[in-house]
């Protein structure tokens, strides 16, 4: 199966390719299913791995998501992109698994966010944030960033993963997590603020944080 219209770039071409793929799926073509699975599994698994600490759980969630998608394909209405719909199903599979296996209470986002005095000004004017990339090697830095992302409360982590890790846009993220675009923006901003606190080189402890 060859995708049509490779001459035009951008959204129109992407939509055309997706319509072609969807038609193949609806006809039950094995090649269409294989293309869908091979093209989308890496991103879906990356999301599942960020949402679920256990590798087997992540693999199970992706597999369960595809099975649910295959089952739901006849009723897919095409109002969202096929990949967005698949993301939503896999994210829901992850959330169900996460909620059934939660071992420890989550930290409140308010506990992580910056604090202010009653007049709205900063408690610590001039306090320096230590860029963790100044003291950590790349592999260690990536591990620390991922650990910090894993510490975010689930509702914030998923938005940050979809927007900043997966690079999805605000509208698509909203469809996947069932939020308005404004709510996605608010959560993303707070997630980034919390992540900033968690990746502060002073807190990561490599060099003691003495300025």
């Amino acid at each position: 199966m060859a995708p049509p219209g490779t001459s035009s770039a951008g959204a129109a071409s992407r939509d055309e390719n997706e319509a072609f793929l969807l038609a193949g799926l609806r006809r039950g073509e094995a090649a269409a299913f294989e293309r869908l699975v091979r093209d989308t599994t890496p991103r879906l698994l990356a999301i599942a791995r960020r949402m679920l600490p256990n590798e087997d759980d992540a693999l199970d969630a992706v597999q369960e998501g595809y099975l649910a998608a295959f089952k739901g394909l006849p009723s897919f209405d095409g109002n969202s992109r096929l990949s967005t719909w698949l993301h939503r199903i896999v994210v829901n599979a992850c959330l169900m698994k996460l909620r059934s296996r939660r071992r420890r209470p989550e930290r409140s986002i308010e506990d992580i966010l910056p604090k202010f005095k009653e007049d709205g000004h900063s408690w610590e004017p001039g306090s320096a944030w230590r860029n963790p990339s100044e003291s950590l090697e790349q592999a260690e830095l990536s591990a620390k960033i991922l650990e910090a992302i894993d510490e975010l409360p689930e509702n914030y982590r998923i938005v940050l993963v979809l927007r900043d890790i997966q690079g999805l846009d605000t509208a698509e993220t909203g469809v996947i997590v069932g939020l308005s675009e404004n709510a996605v923006k608010t959560r993303l901003h707070r997630a980034r603020q919390a992540l900033r606190e968690l990746v502060d080189g002073r807190a990561l402890g490599k060099d003691g944080g003495n300025d």
Binding site: V37, R38, T41, P42, R43, L45, A46, R49, R50, L59, V62, Q63, Y66, L67, P132, S133, L141, S142, I145, L146, I149, L160, D164, I165, Q166, G167, R192, L195, V199
Partner: peptide, 22 residues
């Protein structure tokens, strides 16, 4: 930094057994 990590994890290995199972 988050986006930089995102570029690396998007290249994560997918176990062949997962694709086969699906």
């Amino acid at each position: 930094l988050a986006r930089q990590v995102g570029r690396s994890v998007s290249q994560d290995d997918v176990p062949p057994r997962l694709i086969e199972a699906i």
